[in-house]
């Protein structure tokens, strides 16, 4: 990426038991992913309330990604299954309101998948960068 290129702000909600460790592993292995990915650690992907996602957009995020354990591997047995339903419905609703569907994503990343974590973030950041700034879920008051 060029210096003058637009860099999207990404908020990544990462499950403590898998993708957060995955991010760590990515770091340990010196795998690079954009510095504009802000990781927020959550105890389980299903801790992510739809409000968190909207608030992230409000405060300036251009993309929001939720990373959890692979289906079947949830530390709490079934948390990520609930995440899957909730986010499927929420993303569909956001799309219904005309908000670009590429701005939100759910990925399953285990603690061992440092490479997948970096790859996912690079890919997501690229996708969001292509969309440009978040205009449809922005709060004008939060703009500089």
């Amino acid at each position: 990426m060029q210096m003058n290129e637009y860099k999207p702000l990404i908020v990544a909600f990462c499950c403590n038991w898998c993708s957060y460790a995955g991010a760590d592993l990515a770091g340990n292995n010196r795998l690079s992913y954009p510095a504009d990915v802000k990781i927020i650690r959550v105890p389980c992907s299903c801790r992510v309330n739809p409000m968190f996602i909207l608030r992230a957009f409000q405060k300036g995020a251009d993309g929001v990604i939720i990373c959890g354990c692979h289906p079947g591997d949830c530390h709490y047995t079934s948390g990520n299954y609930y995440t899957r339903r909730r986010m499927a419905l929420l993303f569909s609703m956001l799309e219904f309101l005309g908000i670009e569907r590429e701005r939100t994503r759910v990925e399953w990343v285990s603690a061992a998948e440092g490479a997948k974590f970096a790859e996912t973030m690079n890919d997501f950041a690229e996708t969001v960068a292509a969309l440009g700034e978040n205009k449809r879920l922005e709060d004008l008051r939060c703009k500089k």
């Binding site: 079934s78 299954y81 899957r84 339903r85 993303f91 994503r105 759910v106």
Partner: peptide, 17 residues
């Protein structure tokens, strides 16, 4: 349905579009 699940549910990425 929102307090229920199956292991075969569709992925959020498939829900859009």
């Amino acid at each position: 349905p929102i307090v229920n699940y199956t292991t075969e549910d569709l992925e959020p990425g498939e829900a859009v579009g």
